[in-house]
């Protein structure tokens, strides 16, 4: 009997939920806002699906209904990726420790 590959993906999914659970509990509460903006950025890895859809058309028909949705999704996800990582970077750069000499 062969195992359906779906089961493997499901295993990865469930194990990742557990990893997420433990990793997120260890995030310090003062960084919860950057946590939200960075999770925003990484969930936009959905862009890989958008790229596949966008490149699906052959060379004479780059623009069909399916690939247009792909292109739009690429832009949406890209806003999130750049916006999410950069705004996180901007926030994290502000967190400073007390200066010793004060």
């Amino acid at each position: 009997m062969e195992i359906d590959p779906f089961i493997f993906r499901l295993s990865i999914f469930i194990l990742s939920i557990f990893i997420g659970y433990y990793v997120v509990w260890s995030v310090t509460p003062s960084l919860h806002t950057p946590l939200m903006s960075v999770t925003n950025a990484i969930s936009s890895v959905i862009i890989v699906g958008a790229i596949i859809a966008g490149l699906a058309g052959n060379s004479d028909t780059i623009f069909n209904t399916s690939s247009i949705f792909g292109f739009l999704a690429i832009s949406l996800a890209a806003i999130n990726i750049f916006g999410g990582f950069l705004v996180t970077q901007r926030m994290l750069a502000m967190y400073k420790k007390k200066k010793k000499d004060k």
Partner: peptide, 9 residues
């Protein structure tokens, strides 16, 4: 499209 989104972001 990637660049447009990236610039806006």
């Amino acid at each position: 499209f990637l660049l447009i989104g990236g610039l806006i972001g």
